[in-house]
Design a protein around this nucleic acid. Structure first.
Lengths: 154, 154
DNA sequence: TCTTGATTGTTAGGTAGCCTAAATGTTAGG
DNA sequence: CCTAACATTTAGGCTACCTAACAATCAAGA
């Protein structure tokens, strides 16, 4: 299919080197993001989940797909959010098998607070970079998003 | 200290927007990296751990610091690697309290195999990007590494 | 209509990786 | 020596994943 993947060496070594460097950077990024967590606050997964909920309601399967996890894992998160009063499950009017998960006012407030704190903390680190570095970062973010799609839905 | 952090708005909103976009991209990257995992293979954490071991041996505390986890978590990983025959713990000749963790030949082979497979899979995705996109990605990787440092060791 | 297979979600049970607190052994300074 | 600091392991607990098995509902064809 892709000739560059079949060659014993050559063109491909650049791609594999980039892949290697990317993996290393992502490893660091994982620990970086972990350091943004705070104690009494929403966990990263809960925050991500809440942020995709609208007031119209999102189905459990859609939430799972957006998070990149299986349905039971999504259910687990939703139950926790519901216990915290940040989300509500209501029957889907169109399909009685399904459930619509909706964010509450408390949920909206919690998201805003967590986002504010995390962004402020990260902005502190970003402020120590040069303008050139920040520009490079900004240029690369859409590319990173695209790689996820290029890897295939799996 | 940093004036841009104290202003009610203005300069800072750019930083916070970048922070927000960065967090979103990293969220996707986490799921991306997770999709590189394969079944019978080394887990990501084990791979990272093995890769930092030399034949001279690394101490448990150093491994923990490099991984960004607490010492008992590192011990846990090391015990697993030892059971798999990929690493060995030997007494530190200079300090009897300490332990030197060394990679074995099987460990080296396992790292090489896992790296090869993961890089190939990721390179497949990278090959679908344009040259410009790949260049942007490459330029940003060192920046991402630097952000980790700028956030502080914590 | 009625049955059958696919779809949606939850429940049950298990694993991996992380944490804190407490225990063990070692070193080094007064 | 004695004590404080240090390196590691053990013990116990948490969270976020997973698969398998179940219940309910839908949709399609005999």
């Amino acid at each position: 299919m892709n000739p560059s993947l079949d060659r014993p060496d050559g063109d491909n070594s650049g791609l594999e080197q980039l892949a290697q460097d990317f993996r290393e950077a992502m490893r660091r990024a994982v620990y970086l993001v972990r350091r943004l967590d705070a104690d009494g606050e929403l966990a990263t997964t809960q925050l991500s989940t809440l942020k995709m909920l609208g007031t119209e309601g999102l189905r459990v399967g859609d939430i799972a797909r957006n998070l990149g996890v299986k349905v039971p894992s999504a259910t687990e998160q939703i139950i926790k959010l519901e216990r915290l009063g940040l989300a509500i499950r209501r029957p889907d009017p169109d399909d009685s098998r399904a459930v619509r998960v909706v964010i509450t006012d408390d949920g909206l407030a919690a998201v805003a607070a967590a986002d504010r704190r995390r962004n402020a903390k990260l902005a502190g680190a970003l402020s120590k970079l040069s303008d050139v570095e920040r520009a490079r970062l900004a240029d690369a973010l859409p590319v990173i998003t695209r790689i996820g799609g290029a890897l295939g839905p799996e």
